[in-house]
Design a protein around this nucleic acid. Structure first.
Ligand SMILES: [Mn+2]
Ligand SMILES: [Mn+2]
Ligand SMILES: [Mn+2]
Ligand SMILES: [Mn+2]
Lengths: 143, 143
DNA sequence: ACAGAAATGTAGCCTCGGCTACATATCCGT
DNA sequence: ACGGATATGTAGCCGAGGCTACATTTCTGT
C-alpha cells in the first residue's frame, strides 16, 4: 500500500520503451542472420528459401527484404538474390555471436539443447552488451 | 557448402514461428502484470497510471486494455478502473514468477542488477517451461 | 527451343500497436 | 455547488508484418 508511486515511473517506462525498441529490431536481425547463413551455404539468398526457413509466405519475406533495403542493410535486383551491405553483414555477424553466446549460456546453466535453441531465437534480441559480457565471463570460468 | 538444405527447414521455421507467437503474447503479459501491480498497490488500475508506467499515451493503453478484455483477461466499465479476471490474475502471477526467476538467474551468472532488470523485461516472454525449470534448479544449487 | 514448373513481383486485405486531436465525463478545491 | 483540472473515451492516421490471389519472369527438362 505504498503511496510513493511516482519515483520509479521514468525508470520502469524506460525499460518498457527499450524493450519495444529491441522488438522492432528483432525481425531485421533474424532476416540478416538468415540471409547471411544462406549466402554462406549457397552463395546467394533467394526469397523462396528465406521465406521457407522463416516459416512465412514469400510476399511476407519480400516485404521484410524491402524494409532491409530501405534501412540500408541489404541490396537486390528484381528476380535476383538478396545480398547484404557492409552494414547488414556487420549486423549478421553480431547477431550470430549473440545467438551462440545465449545458447551456450543456457546450456551451461542446464537448459536442454533443443529448448535452448528455440528460446535463444527470442532471447537473443533482448540481451544488452553488459549482459553479453557477463555471459562470456561466466562461460570462461565455468567451461 | 552443404547441399542438404532441406532437412532442418521445418525445425527452424517452427522455432521462428514459436518466437512470433511469444511476441504476440508479450504485450498482454506486460499489461496484466502491470495492472496486477497497480491493484496490489492502490486497489485499482487506472488508465492514466497504466499508460504512464508503460511509457505510452493513454489511447494506446486504452486499446491494449480493450484487447485484454476481448481475450477475457480483464474487465472494466467506462470511467472506472481496470480489473483482472481469474484468467488475467493467473497470467499475472505466472509472469511475475518468470520475471523474478529470469532476473535472479541473470544476477546469479554475474549480470549487473540494473541491466538484469531491463533485459528481463524482454527475455521473460521467451523462456519456455523447460528453461524455467533449469533456471530454478541452477539457482537452488548455486544460491 | 519451348512448354510447364518454379520463383518472384505486386495488389490489396487484415490486425496490432503506436500516435495526435478533440469530445466528454469525473474529481476536487474553494 | 460549481468551475477548472484531470481522467477517460473516441476518431482517425500511420507503419509493421502477417495473409491470399493473381500476374509476370526465370529456369529447366525434354
Ligand atoms: Mn531471433
Ligand atoms: Mn538467431
Ligand atoms: Mn516484459
Ligand atoms: Mn515483467
Amino acid at each position: 500500500m505504498t503511496e510513493d508511486h511516482f519515483d520509479d515511473t521514468p525508470v520502469q517506462a524506460e525499460r518498457f520503451s527499450q524493450t519495444r525498441t529491441a522488438q522492432s529490431q528483432a525481425l531485421l536481425e533474424d532476416y540478416t542472420e538468415m540471409i547471411d547463413d544462406l549466402i554462406r551455404a549457397h552463395g546467394e539468398a533467394r526469397i523462396t528459401d528465406i521465406a521457407r526457413l522463416m516459416g512465412v509466405t514469400h510476399p511476407t519475406a519480400t516485404k521484410a527484404v524491402a524494409r532491409l533495403k530501405r534501412e540500408g542493410l541489404a541490396v537486390s535486383r528484381p528476380y535476383r538474390g538478396v545480398f547484404l551491405t557492409e552494414l547488414g553483414s556487420g549486423m549478421a555477424e553480431r547477431v550470430r555471436g549473440r545467438h551462440r553466446l545465449v545458447v551456450d549460456l543456457l546450456v551451461a546453466v542446464g537448459v536442454p539443447p533443443e529448448a535452448a535453441e528455440t528460446d535463444a531465437e527470442g532471447i537473443e534480441h533482448y540481451v544488452s552488451d553488459a549482459t553479453l559480457t557477463a555471459f562470456a565471463a561466466f562461460l570462461t570460468r565455468q567451461p
